[in-house]
Design a protein around this nucleic acid. Sequence first.
DNA 1: CAAGAATTATGAACCC
DNA 2: GGGTTCATAATTCTTG
Lengths: 103, 103, 103, 103
Amino acid sequence: MSEAPFDTTDDAAASRARQAANPDPAVGGVAVDRLRSIIDRVERLEEERKALASDIKDIFSEAKSAGFDVAVLKQILRLRKKEPAEIEEQETLLDIYRRALGM
Amino acid sequence: MSEAPFDTTDDAAASRARQAANPDPAVGGVAVDRLRSIIDRVERLEEERKALASDIKDIFSEAKSAGFDVAVLKQILRLRKKEPAEIEEQETLLDIYRRALGM
Amino acid sequence: MSEAPFDTTDDAAASRARQAANPDPAVGGVAVDRLRSIIDRVERLEEERKALASDIKDIFSEAKSAGFDVAVLKQILRLRKKEPAEIEEQETLLDIYRRALGM
Amino acid sequence: MSEAPFDTTDDAAASRARQAANPDPAVGGVAVDRLRSIIDRVERLEEERKALASDIKDIFSEAKSAGFDVAVLKQILRLRKKEPAEIEEQETLLDIYRRALGM
DNA sequence: CAAGAATTATGAACCC
DNA sequence: GGGTTCATAATTCTTG
């Protein structure tokens, strides 16, 4: 089952200082500082993620203005991602099956 | 309104005029450098996005080890994104429906 | 999992009384019968969906026992789904862009 | 053994005749009839699944027109899938976390 | 602003 | 049974 959420990693020095006085300020059995830290960090990272998404959107917008077809640009990007992955595929078996099916 | 990088209209003349002064070499009517720049920038940003997603995953992993319920943490994050009024609204409706269904 | 198809509380009597005069008895402003019908129908359909998923799983299980590689079978199915869709793709523009990028 | 282009039409009689002489004609070591049967059956079931999904979509559409909040309807359906104990558990934890965060 | 497509997140299935 | 990959569900964004 679940363990008590004690700090096991090296958080900030301030956190250790707090812990000297209070090992783990708990509310309802929950390590509040730890919880707050988790939520804060995730929210921070998600914000950065969102900002990057916005940047990407801007580039596509600019591309569209420049006369490019955004859908095709996205296809290009997909292609460039997929191709290395496809190298490792079990193409041999796939071919055998396709032949068997007359595909 | 976007135009294909193919100049099939009167803009063709303007395009040729631009090209005379514009060092961006064109292949098949496409501004190659511009295209390459778009693709490169998007790929760079997507890489950063992926890295952030990985960081977030790590935090949840750490949270789980510390005894937190990750599903509930995600619920918390979802709640914090919504307006308090929105939360109230949805919860009220949910209650009404539940009551109507005898749940 | 037991469910009470009918009101088991005192509301039942009031509900029946309302029904005599009102074609769609409302609780908290909600058309109860309509709501119940929606939920029931969706749940019924989802059950059928689940049963079909189970049937599919059984076939794959049988196929595996017969010596087929299930992952490759799934690839085959994906291929057969995708190919018709790819016909309509803007392959011309894609080719142009790819050429411009030296892909 | 050369590759046999299989009939895609209804040729059950011929198929049975072949099987009398050969329990399962193989191409490249693969039991062709068996393979074809697997693929066909899965595709048939997936088609039915798709039809059901479409029916469900229609119901939600109808519900929306009738003034219901579709997002909340889906919440209701999700709730009804979970064990009551599970619901209670999650809601309790959610409350604890919210309180710990002062939400 | 609603409908539809594309992206993202959740949940299920599979393998180790 | 725990982690990883894949399919489905939900959200977001774009377009008519």
